[in-house]
Design a protein around this nucleic acid. Structure first.
Lengths: 252, 252
DNA sequence: ACCTGAACACCGTTCAAGT
DNA sequence: ACCTGAACACCGTTCAAGT
């Protein structure tokens, strides 16, 4: 008695299909853009070159990205999606709350080193020149993903409170703690290359620095067990192994 | 008996004068660029507009900056020079080593809020697109200034060691500590606006976050007196007053 | 030796025509 | 409804001519 349900279903299916194909093409374009970025540097990424590398025309590319800057923001969204996957994997390693916090820091560090180009996109996307010319929807997408990432961090802090591993006296909120850890991780990973290039430290590995930074902050917070009472160096290596096994090789 | 010392002296004087005038003009150009940046945003800063705002021609501007990106890097050099002045003022406040470390963090925070545009230039200048197209000499200038700034931080850590306020066991070097504090400060100040914009914290002031972050790190390090034994909140306010008095108003 | 600004080249963006 | 690519516009950069 209902009016042609199959027709509706086919229409919906077609529309879905079309959206899925568009989505796939966008993913391909992003991959090509990333490749150009790696091979030619940021100055070498032009819309002409992306057009040449792809099999679509300029107009179609502008159908996906409203500006070159929007393309950069799209790459940063891609970055955050990968980070999200890494965070999920990181939270699947077992251990007490501080080990899990460390796992998240490791995931962040791992991403910054295995995908340096995408990590730099994230930095570029924070720049006003890029924000000013990106579409509102793309910026909203980025924000939503960042919120999800921070959500994972808050989750671990809540676990710590439940375990009685920390006590938040003196008005230090969960949000505040999350933010400070984010800031520490962002700074320690983003500034490593510049600092190294100016010869600031001789043989200090980024890994060790990040681990030391986390330990400093979490010890300061009194997150038990303290680094004096637990071997976080071994823990770090265990996390590294666990995450490497889950993602044997990075995509080409 | 010597050959015309006056002539040489006059020549030198003229040459000095010329260099000084060029330097002055460059300073003026940077000021104008900053003004355009504030009024029109990063997308609004074009070489044409800068030419129009100045009283020189395009060719002359390219005599100062080899590219638009070089101009951004020059603005970041200007930023670092101002930061250096603030650091010097910060170190003139009296107190034990941890108070002096706090003073440096305050100076960094103060700069990031009173000169948001220049602070963003610093962020942009860290971006590959800008680095790739900046002159080697300008990049070297920036590096030298950053090294000077980090030198101030190391100085305070050495003071702490001399005072026996900290003990660096376990291979944690002065450079490592300096880097981690830089990373923390950079992250906490650079991410504040984005985080605020996504509504991550309701009424948390940047100041309080930065202070909390520093306390966490320095407590974790065991830098005496610990925050439980000393009123760093008051100390922070005392530093704020001291730095405001030395520089009553920021330049327009 | 330095300044000028017209000319050039490149590249981001649009849009009329096509399917 | 979507794709195309020629045309456009803007803007970074250069350089022959001038002082």
């Amino acid at each position: 008695m209902k009016a042609q349900p199959p027709a509706v279903s086919i229409a919906a299916h077609n529309s879905d299909n079309r959206a899925r194909l568009k989505q796939q093409r966008e993913q391909l374009l992003l991959q090509l853009a990333q490749q150009i970025l790696q091979q030619e540097g940021f100055a070498g990424l032009t819309m002409d070159r992306l057009t040449a590398a792809s099999e679509v025309s300029k107009g179609t590319i502008y159908n996906h990205f409203c500006s070159k800057e929007d393309l950069i923001t799209a790459l940063s969204v891609d970055s955050l999606q990968r980070q999200l996957l890494l965070f999920q994997q990181a939270l699947s390693v077992s251990g007490h709350s501080r080990e899990r916090a460390l796992a998240l820091h490791y995931a962040y560090f791992l991403f910054s080193t295995t995908e340096p180009t995408l990590f730099l996109c994230l930095l570029s996307a924070a720049t006003p020149a890029v924000v000013e010319k990106s579409s509102a929807s793309r910026l909203a997408q980025r924000q939503a993903l960042e919120q999800q990432l921070l959500g994972f961090c808050q989750q671990v802090i809540r676990q710590a409170l439940a375990e009685n591993a920390i006590s938040l006296q003196g008005g230090c909120s969960i949000e505040e703690l999350t933010y400070l850890q984010w800031a520490q991780a962002f700074g320690a990973n983003a500034l490593y290359r510049p600092a190294q290039q100016m010869g600031f430290f001789q043989g200090l590995a980024q890994q060790q620095l990040v681990l030391a930074g986390v330990n400093l902050m979490l010890d300061g917070l009194g997150w038990r067990p303290l680094s004096a009472d637990f071997d976080y160096q071994s823990c770090w290596q265990r996390i590294a192994l666990a995450l490497q096994q889950q993602a044997p090789q990075a995509q080409s």
